[in-house]
Design a protein around this nucleic acid. Structure first.
Length: 108
DNA sequence: TTTATGGCTGTCA
DNA sequence: ATGACAGCCATAA
């Protein structure tokens, strides 16, 4: 690959998500100026190397759940990382977007 | 070139 | 609540 250059905008947005907050894939795509490109966000995050400074774990799907992926390893890791930031999951492995979703133009 | 598959999402039944 | 479908488009084969 030439580089993940085209995903820099996405990474920048994700890095703006505050600790203890989450954003959806669609929301992240939108903020990056890529409406309807939720899957691109997923792909961009998937491409991140281990130990990246990008807080990929703060991106969840529109239902407030951790999306299933080809390799489930990082799935658990994501939940642990979020819980470590004070985010609580309900018995359905879901979080309250109303409570934790990042509001860029409002109350952070 | 075409097909298939994604860390997705909104709509409809 | 669940399931099916259509958009969306970068990658891989």
């Amino acid at each position: 690959m030439l580089s993940g250059r085209k995903y820099e905008l996405i990474y920048a947005v994700v890095m703006d998500i505050p600790v203890g907050r989450v954003a959806t894939y669609g929301q992240t795509a939108d903020l990056a100026g890529l409406p309807r490109r939720a899957r691109m966000v997923g792909f961009a995050l998937k491409q991140l190397p281990a130990g990246s400074v990008v807080p990929w774990h703060r991106v969840v799907n529109s239902r407030g759940e951790i999306s299933e992926r080809r390799r489930p390893d990082s799935q658990f890791e994501q939940q642990v990382l979020l819980e470590d930031e004070g985010i609580r999951f309900n018995r359905h492995h879901r979080i309250s977007l109303a409570k934790y979703q990042w509001q860029p133009s409002g109350r952070g």
